[in-house]
Design a binder for these strands. Sequence first.
DNA 1: GTCATATTAGATAGATCGATCTAGTGAGAA
DNA 2: TTCTCACTAGATCGATCTATCTAATATGAC
Lengths: 193, 193
Amino acid sequence: MANDTRQRLLEASAQLFREQGYAGTGLKQITTAGGAPWGSLYHFFPGGKEQLGAEAIAHSGARYERLFELTFARGGEDIVQCVRDFFQLSVDALEKSGWADGCPIATVAMEVASTSEPLRHACAEVFASWEAAFARGLAGAGIPPERAAELATYALAAFEGAIVLSRTTHDTRALRITAEVVATTLRAELPAA
Amino acid sequence: MANDTRQRLLEASAQLFREQGYAGTGLKQITTAGGAPWGSLYHFFPGGKEQLGAEAIAHSGARYERLFELTFARGGEDIVQCVRDFFQLSVDALEKSGWADGCPIATVAMEVASTSEPLRHACAEVFASWEAAFARGLAGAGIPPERAAELATYALAAFEGAIVLSRTTHDTRALRITAEVVATTLRAELPAA
DNA sequence: GTCATATTAGATAGATCGATCTAGTGAGAA
DNA sequence: TTCTCACTAGATCGATCTATCTAATATGAC
């Protein structure tokens, strides 16, 4: 068909929501950024802004999950180094984008937690998928599954919070420090080699 | 004077920004929630929404900093228990408020990081003040000042991220797990008793 | 080629946004 | 009292928001 308008709208939405949040991004801005005609927006997303939001969250979530798995797969056995690598990806992304590209959904997640149940739920599912991917990596390194799930939640929380701090302060210090402490903490949980 | 209109506007702003974010909160909603006449808003805050936002951030930040210091003071020597207590405060606040009261400024911080330099700076200052308060507590427990500053950044990041997860999932699990891991990590850094 | 459908085009509605303005009210100072 | 000034009241402005609507135009099936 050679028509990727829908995809462009989705990616423009994901990028803008990531930077400016949900309420702070207008549909007009999305169509402009996506190079899509206004009429197409409600054609592809008849549910309006909320549908666009939900799909953008899921889209960003799935892409980031692949990044998780790719990082863990590339790291092989050394799970601690994988964690460090993943933090480093965010360091690079923040610096490269001028502190715009933090977590793809955290901004929206906080905004909509008390204002839109469908969007909150979409965010919760994404976080759960990331936690699961993280937990698989930790379990693969020999940590008992139940403990791996707990540590995945912890590591994800530390990661998200470090992004909040680094993006706000325009300084990667929080991400770098948090990466080291989390890496050390996780190493201590690994089974004796 | 017996006129606390300005204060009511400030507190209503702080509460609404905390729940719904900056862009998602209208000035009309603020005056209504604060029981203040529309005309008063631009009388007390001639700088408009941005001034109101900056002052609300500083207001929330100072109040939360006192909560930090109060928790640390009450805990006496046992810094690890202080950390646990502080996480517990958030657990209680989230449950009591129906998952509305998370971090007082995180939602706004993420939103404005790429859209308003004055507001971003206000958030950065608040985070710095919390880190400093945290670091004082850790240093008071015998951790070398430089390391205390690092651990404060780490603990604050973990705390913020856990709030993001708990508020989004409507489950205090992330906060509870993160509190335990962080507490264990910090205990290992304390000088031998 | 013809027809049905998918997509685009963009005007428009109706609401709400932040901000400004003038007029009015009220309490305390002189 | 009378004056002054902090504060309130709320209409109003232009911009922007989401959403809907009708036409026009492509596109692919047959």
